[in-house]
Design a protein around this nucleic acid. Sequence first.
DNA 1: GACAGCCGCTCTCGTCATTG
DNA 2: CAATGACGAGAGCGGCTGTC
Length: 562
Amino acid sequence: MKTYSNVSRKTVREDRIAICPIFGCESIKRVKPLKFRFLGFGKYPKCRKHRIPLVYVDERIGDFVDAALACFFDKAGLPPNDLLEYVKSQVPDEITSFVEGWVYCITVGRGAPIVSRYMDTISNTYLKQLTKKQIKAIKRGGTSKPNLVNKAIKSGMDEITFQYTRVLKHLRAHSEVLTDRQKLQALSKNLQNYLKEWQKNTLENNKIIKSPENRQEMALEEIKNNYDQILNIGTCRCLIGLDPESKEIKKAKLTAFDRFSAYYEFYTERLATKFTKLDIEKICSENKSVIKVLKSKDSSKELNYYDIKASTSSCKLEAIKDYLKSINWQVISKNWTIQVKGQGSITLNPYKSCSNQNPLYKHKKWLEWIYLNEDLNLSDRTITKICGLKNHKSIRYWRNKFNIQTKEESGFYFNPDGYIDLYMPKTYKHPELNPFGKKRIQRREHIVKMENHLMISSTSRELDLHPYLIGDDNGMYYIKTGCIVHHINYRKRDNYIDNLWLYASNSEHNNTNINPCLSGLIKLGQILFSQSNNKYILNSNFDYRNLESEQIKEIIKPVEFF
DNA sequence: GACAGCCGCTCTCGTCATTG
DNA sequence: CAATGACGAGAGCGGCTGTC
């Protein structure tokens, strides 16, 4: 569990704004330093309503947004299997419009309007804590009267703005990338009636609505399943034009904020996983996906399109070529005959590889599909290779001819070692990297995340005194070279801040002493030794967390020698 | 079309600790 | 002492794009 800095007027160095840590509680207060450190009431300000200590807004608001976003975009929010099976078997024509409609309704069904209203309230109340002069100074921005508004208050404002922007960006991505409005269609009456029945039945069987007190006896995953059912009812109700909050849910006093709090717990316990466009497409289409193509080559390894990007070029090209053959091209275009100057009309075969005799890139729909496919994310250069051409300019030429706009390039790349590399903007002026400013700075994503986290969560004094940080002239702080940002769960792409730990040096990093932990897991049977492979393997049929803590202590206690 | 500066992407090398 | 794994850092090829 994350710990927050205790809001204490004894230690607060300058005015800051604090809030009740309960999501949805609007109790917000300006915390001033005590004039005499030993005197004064309200040394540890508490929420009047909940009687618990306040936390700083800038430390808590990010958690709320994390929780809300985890809730909106969790995989469990996609259409549930029982509904999908019904639609596929009974009304197969409606599968696309049903899935598109469902995804369209997810954000509203899961409470997006409430987040937006809450963020509005927080930012307004935050501003009310300031004097008119201070608000004017903030609005003026720049360096005007820097002493009037102290740094902590300014950074709190910035954090609220940053987090609000995050919410809006995700919602925008949802409406522009994840949903396709043109595919939205009214559902048939049959399906609507079935959805009404479905939500009634689901509500009746939901354990949390039936008896909320049972929650304490349930495993976290079970709680999540029940919460997801409630949230999916919200989405379903939106889809059939009803208010997402049903009477039963209101009766059970399960507010949207309770659900976000629950989701914060799921998020911190890593039970929430974000869905992508690929997941939606997978539901809609029966096509063999890239994943399946690659899986067939190495069935033991779970692959996704990140792995495709990171895999070796030849393997990637072959996988993509195989994948392209499996696409249902008849849906994309019905006419595969093109006119080529000097050769007359040619009938292309999209199920065969691209070649001189089969120049698929000269077909507008083919090129458009392959270039704009977000999961493949192919560049002109890669398409050139797929087509067996030498000069990428040919692909660009045909793109221009067909009026296919150049994509916005993304600023991150998958290092073959497994990390995510970022190209840093020019404002990133790490004093120890590229001191003459001639080259672009590349930085691993997890280091940048740690730097951002430290900048947000530390006071200016803490930043100045931090032994692992180095500052620049513009008040930015960077992790010194030589320090190591370690992935706690050893997953190099899991760059959530909770999975990162900063070490002073490689030697300190290598002293993490993982061996005693591993031996504990071996004693518990979580890790087994496979004699056929001569290797240790993970025992996936067993979860030591199901044991009582006393049992675990008994098993892993030190061996006694006679 | 030549040129320059920028940038996408890949590849390589270095350090340190551990292991056998 | 060589091999290996986790991590950091950046060189370099050649494509992209704007300008003349």
